[in-house]
Amino acid sequence: LGAGQSIQKTYDLTRYLEHQLRTLAGTYLNYLGPPFNEPDFNPPRLARAERVPSATVDLDLWRGLTDNARLAANYRAYSRLLCYLRGLDGQVGAVELRHRLGHFCSSLQGLVLSIAGVMSSLGYPLPAGPAGPPLPPGSSAAPNDFLKKMDDFWLLKELQTWLWRSAKDFNRLKKKVPPAVVTLRLETRGF
C-alpha cells in the first residue's frame, strides 16, 4: 500500500471513529448521569485530567508541524488514549455499553497501527515507548467515584477532539503526499 493510500485509509478510519464516538460518548455520558451528560457541563480541568494527551495546539505551531512531527504526535496520543480507554472499558456495568466500548477500542487500535503504517511507508521511525513521564504508582485510581467519572468525561472529550484534529492532520497529509511520487522515491533509495 503506497503512502498516499495509507494516509487516505487512515483519514477514512479517523472519520469513522469520529462518527462512532459521537454516539458512543453520548451513551456513556448518559451512563455516567448528571451533571456529566448535561450540554452545558463545563467543569474545570483537574490536574489528573492533564495526564490525558491534549489535542490543543497553537495554530501557527500546528500549521508548521513537519509531516513526521504531525504523525508522531498522533501516534503518541492515540497510544496513550487507547490505554486509558481500555481502563474505562473494564469497569462499565452495562454489558451492551461495554461491548461497544470494546469494539471501539479495537478500532482505535486499528488507527494506531494505521498511523504506524503511514510513518513506516514514509520512512519515519515510530516514537519510542509511551511518551511522557510514566504514571506514578497508585495515581491512576481516582480517590472517589465523582473524580473517576470526571476522568472519564475528560478522556472522552479529549478523544473526540483528537479525532477531529487528526481528520485535519490527515487531510493535510493527503494533499501533501500524492500516492505515486512517494512510492517511486522509496524504490530509488533501495528499500
Binding site: 490543543t56 495546539v57 497553537d58 495554530l59 500546528w62 475528560w154 484534529r165
Partner: peptide, 12 residues
C-alpha cells in the same frame, strides 16, 4: 482571534 486550536475547554 483563536490562539489555540482543538481545545477541549469551553468558551464562556
Amino acid at each position: 482571534r483563536y490562539l489555540q486550536l482543538f481545545s477541549t475547554v469551553k468558551y464562556k
